[in-house]
């Protein structure tokens, strides 16, 4: 464990230099949030509605702000591009002989980057939300520890899926299109709208999908906490963490084997 901690620390220092870049990339996120603010404002005001699918305007905006916040972590190049380029260039062969697991190495780096990202993006997100819509009245501070827990698990799930897709590169030359697909699916079914906005027949499908565990579930708890639903989210998250870890372990093993057979 200590070696991963030292990778974490080293990356932390390295990434600190790029804090300015992260700040800039929040501009892009902020623009997305702003577009959704304009869209929902238009939709709420044009029908003179105060509630859509059980959400107030304020809850809807905070929902989008925090789904964007959550997805900003897993869009990191460390889980999305680094493994692919390591595999394609054959550099991964050097890391195989090292006394740590490659997946562990990637995650140590990912957590380091996420630490800095969290500080910057959390501040910016809260600031933007307050400017756009004002404080969120339905947020209850006493549930904060529980919310932090499921937020953390959500980031793990999303980044595991990203990494699983990156490891596709063991078999196919270009795994990037799958990353777009992931992004689009998550954007449409999780980031943009809460579960309740979708047609009734579609809701169960989304509820049991990783999209709910990694995005919409946890953020819903932030804007509108409910202890029963919380347990639902937690169980689903633990299930997906287990499954995804299993998949990535097998995938990596098979991938390396294939690499050895073909000589990279």
């Amino acid at each position: 464990m200590r070696k991963y901690l030292s990778i974490y620390k080293a990356t932390l220092l390295e990434e600190l230099q790029y804090a300015k870049g992260m700040f800039l990339s929040f501009i892009g996120t902020g623009i997305h949030i702003f577009i959704f603010f304009a869209l929902w404002k238009y939709l709420y005001s044009s029908g003179e509605k105060s509630i859509i699918s059980g959400y107030t305007f304020a809850q809807m905006i905070w929902y989008v702000t925090f789904t964007e916040f959550l997805t900003s972590f897993s869009s990191s190049n460390i889980v999305r591009k680094t493994p692919t380029s390591d595999i394609v260039s054959g550099n991964i062969a050097y890391t195989i002989n090292k006394p740590y697991s490659y997946t562990g190495y990637i995650f140590s780096r990912f957590f380091a980057e996420s630490t800095i990202k969290m500080i910057i993006n959390l501040l910016c997100s809260i600031l933007l939300g307050i400017i756009l819509i004002g404080p969120l009245n339905t947020f209850q501070i006493k549930y904060l520890p529980l919310i932090i827990l499921i937020m953390f698990l959500a980031v793990i799930i999303a980044s595991l899926i990203r990494l699983i897709i990156s490891y596709f590169s063991f078999w196919i030359e270009n795994s990037e299109p799958f990353q777009w697909l992931y992004k689009t699916v998550f954007l449409i079914f999780g980031v943009t709208f809460p579960l309740e906005v979708f047609p009734v027949w579609l809701q169960p499908v989304i509820r049991y999908s990783p999209v709910y565990a990694a995005v919409s579930g946890p953020v819903k708890m932030l804007v509108n906490f409910n202890i029963n639903e919380f347990y639902g989210v937690l169980v689903s998250q633990l299930f997906y963490v287990f499954i995804l870890v299993l998949i990535i372990t097998i995938e990596y093993k098979k991938g390396v084997k294939k690499l050895n057979v073909n000589g990279g």
């Binding site: 869209l39 238009y42 939709l43 044009s46 029908g47 003179e48 509605k49 859509i52 699918s53 689009t184 699916v185 954007l187 449409i188 943009t192 709208f193 906005v197 979708f198 047609p199």
Partner: peptide, 17 residues
């Protein structure tokens, strides 16, 4: 797949142009 997004938006857009 973004058309799905718009089908959803339009489903809650009564009154909007």
């Amino acid at each position: 797949s973004f058309l799905v997004q718009w089908i959803i938006i339009l489903s809650v857009s009564d009154g909007a142009d």
